[in-house]
Amino acid sequence: MAFFRRKKFKNGLREKKRVVTDGQFTKCENCNTTFWKKDLEENLMVCPQCGYHFKIYSLDRLKMLFDDEKFEEFDEHLYSPDPFNFVDKKAYKDRLKDMEAKTGIKDAVRCAKGKIGGYDAIVVALEYRFIGGSMGSVVGEKITRMVEKSLELKIPLIIVSASGGARMMEGVLSLMQMAKINSALARLDEAGIPFISVLTDPTTGGVTASFAMVGDLNIAEPGALIGFAGPRVIEQTIRQKLPEGFQRSEFLLRHGMLDAIVDRRNLKEYIVRALKFFLTDAKK
């Protein structure tokens, strides 16, 4: 069943970083097949040849999930005042400005409410292009507010992760967002409101070790890198090469860490089915 009206995605889905574009054409990074750019976009940025899932923008993720691409966004104005005056090779303040210019958003997450298959729902989508989708105070605050909104309105919550973890430039404040969000999720859990966690490439560190792993359903797109520690850190610690496919979705499924792997082209259909399951009263 096709939930999307394909024409909608003509201008919606782009992938600047991973797709080598040459005008009208684009090349799959995984299988090297060349396609019309338009064809890849219409296929929701999944390679028609090998099924490779390209990274996509948070805005496109929202459009893809909500009915008629209609939704209301929240807390877009929140930004980080750089509480630590953090400076590495570049000042964090400048980094934030550059990221805003590049992505059009003030931090690494978009939060929205709308309808999915007719059901009211909240969707949180992390933006990987924004400092690797990392979580600082703003991401933590925005997600917590969405959990609270979901609790207040008694509507399901869907979080689509794409993140390298907690953001270093806000130090321990970033770390504490993990506890803040999961404390809010504890309330959601006790209230019996559904939470679906969708893990996409990549989901690692403090994001995996907080909200991404405590969904009523934890599902992932194929081939996504998912883990606690990054592969390089593990390699350096144990001083041996990692097995093929280590920390990919299929590896996690095999080890019992995921409920399902869902192709992006079936993601909305899956979510609608899950919402129907959660929200249909068994006694009627």
Binding site: S80, S137, L173
Partner: peptide, 9 residues
Amino acid sequence: FRKMGVIAG
């Protein structure tokens, strides 16, 4: 934990 973090805007 709810009040942890520093935000603006």
